[in-house]
């Protein structure tokens, strides 16, 4: 119990030091919401004959499938921005995690307390793989709920029925399940990348970001020069974006019915969950190989923090 409390405190410590973990997604959520709010005010969304009327008429005229498709697109529209923010936050967090304490020499304070290097490094790994994605999911969900709330106000302004027009067709639970699954899959799939960043962070005496990137670029260029191949580059690229390939069924296109004008007519929202390919993920050899490599990098990072004597 005490060990769990202590580990939770290690995680809290990280959020104190790296405030971007909460601030960055909060700012994205705040800005998106503000923009929507501005649009709502601009379009006099709350008045009887304002934009709400178009919304009620538009959604009302749609087939139920098309309505679901529109709401799904509306709710997922903000997700890429959150994901991009998350990737940047994780990148900068991971290269700083084991570097900043050495730069400001506070490592001697942390090491004066009975916390193992194993627990410390694992807490930082846990932040990058679990906590930051979780925070991102929470802010995505919050933004989606706020979006629907604003749509509700508009619909009410035009005296429409918010439940049937907005809330029932919005596949919130499916989207959230997908989001959590995606974060778990991405954490497992990208673990070697994070492990590499942590290792660079534990290794570098200066410029950890450079240490994290340069060896890959140099290695990739050397390979290109020597063999004319791009194995290393493709490996890294696959770790960045390959999770979509491994963890989901490839029939995402068939979920959408697109008409001749390129408009999405329907999204089979009841089948969103069917996108999840857990067996595919768990049987991908790349996943397990990657985890092995990640374990190696993390072990090295722990060893460096434990035994390196920087005088």
């Amino acid at each position: 119990m005490n060990a769990i409390m202590a580990f939770v405190m290690l995680l809290r410590r990280e959020t104190w030091e790296h405030r971007a973990i909460v601030l960055a997604p909060a700012i994205v959520a705040g800005l998106t919401t503000l923009l929507m709010l501005a649009g709502l005010v601009q379009g006099r969304g709350l008045s009887r004959d304002g934009a709400g009327l178009y919304l009620v008429q538009g959604l009302g005229l749609m087939s139920p499938e098309r309505r679901e498709a529109s709401l799904t697109l509306l709710l997922t529209g903000v997700v890429p921005l959150f994901l991009l923010t998350m990737v940047i936050v994780i990148l900068f967090y991971a290269v700083d995690a084991l570097y900043s304490e050495r730069r400001d020499r506070s490592i001697l304070f942390w090491k004066s307390l009975p916390v193992t290097d194993l627990a410390t490094v694992l807490s930082k790994l846990c932040m990058a793989l679990v906590v930051i994605p979780l925070v991102t999911v929470v802010f995505i969900a919050l933004t989606q709920v706020l979006t629907l709330l604003m749509a509700t106000l508009m619909v009410w302004g035009a005296e429409g029925d918010a439940w049937s027009l907005v809330w029932r067709p919005a596949p919130l639970l499916s989207l959230w399940t997908l989001a959590v699954y995606f974060m778990c899959a991405a954490a497992l799939w990208c673990a070697p990348l994070i492990g590499w960043l942590l290792l660079a962070s534990a290794w570098a005496r200066k410029a950890p970001l450079l240490w994290a990137t340069l060896p890959l670029v140099i290695g990739g260029q050397l390979e290109l020069l020597a063999f004319g191949t791009t194995t290393l580059y493709s490996l890294v690229a696959d770790r960045v974006i390959g999770v979509f390939r491994v963890a989901f069924r490839p029939d995402i296109k068939s979920l959408m019915q697109v008409d001749g004008d390129g408009e999405v007519q329907a999204v089979a929202t009841d089948r969103l969950i069917a996108l999840i390919d857990l067996p595919g993920l768990l049987t991908a050899p790349g996943l397990w190989l990657g985890l092995l490599v990640a374990a190696g990098f993390v072990t090295l990072a722990i060893w460096l923090r434990r035994y390196r004597d920087e005088g």
């Binding site: 409390m5 202590a6 939770v8 405190m9 290690l10 809290r12 410590r13 104190w16 030091e17 304490e101 400001d104 020499r105 506070s106 490592i107 001697l108 304070f109 090491k111 004066s112 307390l113 009975p114 916390v115």
Partner: peptide, 30 residues
């Protein structure tokens, strides 16, 4: 480290930490 404490140098407390956070942290891990 459960039985030994040390102060290595005056500058080692991290600049971003707050006084109450320092107390919270040590209380949880020690």
């Amino acid at each position: 480290m459960q039985d030994v404490c040390f102060i290595a140098d005056v500058a080692v407390l991290p600049r971003w930490l707050r006084v109450n956070q320092a107390l919270d942290y040590v209380a949880a891990v020690h």
